[in-house]
């Protein structure tokens, strides 16, 4: 069942993220990031929250790739870790800036490219640790006399396809997050970190690298929730800039 909540209006979440991406070899890449997040409701009286959210670290490894004619097929394996950097408030959804769990992610990704055409599919399993909340009891589908909340794990799937040139990448995306367990919000209740939060989103993203300064690239994108359960129907926009440091080039001089 979908509902609107006039006592919240539209809840907005803004974040600024610092991300570093380090290519150890051609086949091994490490990405680290940490966002600062603000939440705000357009109506009602609830106070917004803000703070540094989770640090995330991903290792991306390309164990296999095939080239035949102009076709290129690659397999990637990603391992990720994320954990809260601060003791932010978890149990004040939808105003919380995050869910507070420490996550371990294993992702397999297949990438296909033919000339400028590209298609990528991936699936990930996200292990989520239990979280602690500020109160000593809670009701999900039964009473729990503890501040510890069991967080269900989740699967994430993504398909992206589009144009991949030397300087411009433009793709359409379809992604899905499915929580493996959890419970539904009862009618007119507050959301809770261990809800069964599922969502399917469609979106687009663009990345452009300056031909004159190839170490500088810009990206932008948006996505829209087309189906969901226990989540808000969100529209998200992102913009960013990357500056690449070419360590290896210097060495090869």
């Amino acid at each position: 069942m979908k509902r609107t909540n006039e006592n919240l209006g539209t809840v907005s979440m803004q974040s600024v993220m610092y991300m570093a991406n380090y290519g150890i070899t051609d086949k091994l890449n490490v990405m680290v990031g940490a966002p600062y997040v603000w939440t705000k409701a357009s109506a009602g009286t609830l106070h917004g929250l803000n703070g540094v959210q989770d640090i995330s670290l991903f290792v991306k490894w390309k164990p296999l790739s095939y080239n035949f004619n102009s076709h290129k097929l690659s397999l990637f394996v990603l391992g990720g870790f994320s954990a809260p950097l601060t003791d932010y408030v978890v149990d004040f959804l939808p105003m919380s800036i995050g869910l507070g769990s420490t996550n371990l992610t294993g992702r397999a990704m297949v990438d296909y490219q033919y000339k400028w055409f590209t298609a990528t599919g991936s699936a990930a399993y996200v292990y989520r640790s239990n979280v602690e909340i500020d109160r000593e009891s809670y009701f999900d589908t039964e009473m729990h006399l503890t501040n510890e909340v069991k967080m269900p794990d989740a699967m994430q799937y993504q398909l992206r396809t589009g144009y991949r040139g030397k300087y411009l990448i433009a793709e359409a995306l379809l992604s899905n997050w499915t929580t493996l367990g959890g419970f539904d919000i009862t009618r007119n209740n507050m959301p809770f970190p261990s809800n069964r939060m599922n969502s399917t989103q469609v979106g687009a993203s663009v990345k452009y690298t300056l031909p004159s300064h190839t170490n500088l690239s810009f990206l932008g994108g948006m996505n829209y929730t087309v189906a969901g359960r226990n989540v808000g129907q969100a529209t998200a926009y992102n913009v960013g800039a990357f500056y690449a440091f070419y360590f290896n080039k210097k060495k090869s001089k």
Binding site: G79, L104, G106, Y127, N130, E136, L145, T146, V149
Partner: peptide, 17 residues
């Protein structure tokens, strides 16, 4: 990472007071 996730995954059940 795989090893850590296997170890932590075993201890998710919670006990009330």
């Amino acid at each position: 990472l795989v090893l850590v996730s296997v170890i932590v995954a075993c201890s998710k059940s919670i006990t009330g007071r």
